[in-house]
Amino acid sequence: MYGPAPDFFPPIGSTDDLAARIGVLEVEAATPSSCTATPVGGPFALVEGARGRLVAPGERVVQLDPYDAGLVRWLEREGRLRIVLPAGPRDGGELVEAYVGQDAAGRRWLGDEIHGQAGGDGEPPLAWIPRGDDEGLLRALIHYAKYNLVLRLARRWHDLLGALRVRVLDCRDTSALAATDLQEPRLPEARSDPRTRYRYLLDHGQPVCVVVENRSPERLSATLLNCATSGRVEVLGTAQLELPPGRQQTFWRRGHLGDAFRCGLPAGRTSGVDRLVAVASTSPAVDLSFLKEARSFDDAIRSSARDMLPEEHEPRELWTAALVTMKISRAGH
């Protein structure tokens, strides 16, 4: 916590930062609009114009198999991670968000509830880390924490439960595309997964558009994000579209009507699962572009820097989110 000065926050942990602080709070529980916190190191008084910012994100829970005590100590110290035993007891019942495994050649892999052996559905891991590259593993986990921010929104923000309906439409029929109303296209919905493991089954290169419907009585502003298999987080279409109650909007590439999105896979992959997340708020002023991530997992692993997590924004307005899984496959797989 800080007072009204300085005008701009100094770098976290710097001498100027520590001198400007009037106290530190540890968040014990949080909702999208409020939190409960206790002072660290004793109580302190809030001054007029007090401000706060996140100085240390909460720990991310990672399952490591095989468990390496030395690696665990280093990862927890360097990355603010909580490493748990494979299928072991978890303090407080934490939700495991990432899984790290190892193949017979000693390479580590990174997965989640869908990708990697932990997913149980045969989807390849999100990333492979060369044998012995602990720094690369740490960078992959830090990158996953940023990638996972959008998925966390989908799990947490349900002030208006069931308010959004998301449909992916197939745009391969160019004659149908030319004849339809591009604002409210009458196009077939993309092929569904008969096993219901995923919402849609799509082909590599398949053109699609996305329709988001507001089923709530509130006027909403919607942003469409895609957590791609590569590790990139994309803001699809325009930054926001307004959704009056009971109405729908169609997201097109770069906001250009009729310009469909192309489903794609990283080079070398035969399949992968993208997660499409529609996030909507009653406030039109909120900008979620900070969630965009241009780098892939491979980019992060090869980098020489550990990028910090962006600050998480928890506004007071009503929020809702809907997540759609789309398995993308190359022809013949």
Score class of each variant (00 low, 15 high):
residue 126 L to P: 07
residue 128 W to P: 05
residue 129 I to M: 08
residue 129 I to Y: 07
residue 131 R to T: 12
residue 134 D to V: 14
residue 135 E to H: 15
residue 138 L to Y: 15
residue 139 R to H: 03
residue 139 R to F: 02
residue 141 L to I: 06
residue 143 H to D: 00
residue 143 H to T: 03
residue 144 Y to P: 01
residue 145 A to K: 14
residue 146 K to R: 15
residue 147 Y to D: 06
residue 148 N to P: 01
residue 155 R to Q: 14
residue 156 R to P: 01
residue 157 W to Q: 14
residue 157 W to L: 12
residue 164 L to Y: 02
residue 166 V to E: 04
residue 166 V to A: 00
residue 168 V to M: 08
residue 169 L to N: 09
residue 169 L to W: 13
residue 174 T to I: 09
residue 174 T to Y: 08
residue 176 A to T: 02
residue 179 A to C: 00
residue 180 T to V: 13
residue 183 Q to K: 12
residue 183 Q to P: 05
residue 185 P to K: 13
residue 185 P to S: 10
residue 186 R to M: 13
residue 188 P to W: 08
residue 189 E to S: 04
residue 189 E to N: 01
residue 190 A to Y: 03
residue 192 S to G: 15
residue 192 S to W: 14
residue 193 D to N: 00
residue 193 D to V: 05
residue 194 P to C: 10
residue 194 P to V: 03
residue 195 R to F: 03
residue 195 R to T: 08
residue 197 R to C: 10
residue 201 L to A: 11
residue 202 L to D: 04
residue 203 D to Y: 09
residue 204 H to L: 14
residue 204 H to T: 11
residue 206 Q to S: 04
residue 207 P to N: 13
residue 211 V to F: 02
residue 213 E to S: 15
residue 216 S to F: 08
residue 217 P to V: 08
residue 218 E to T: 10
residue 219 R to Q: 09
residue 220 L to D: 11
residue 222 A to C: 14
residue 223 T to W: 05
residue 223 T to I: 00
residue 224 L to D: 01
residue 226 N to T: 09
residue 226 N to P: 09
residue 227 C to A: 10
residue 228 A to R: 00
residue 229 T to D: 08
residue 229 T to N: 07
residue 230 S to K: 00
residue 232 R to F: 06
residue 236 L to M: 11
residue 238 T to R: 12
residue 241 L to C: 05
residue 241 L to V: 06
residue 243 L to H: 00
residue 243 L to D: 00
residue 245 P to Y: 04
residue 246 G to K: 03
residue 246 G to T: 04
residue 249 Q to P: 03
residue 250 T to Q: 14
residue 250 T to S: 13
residue 252 W to I: 04
residue 254 R to V: 14
residue 255 G to C: 07
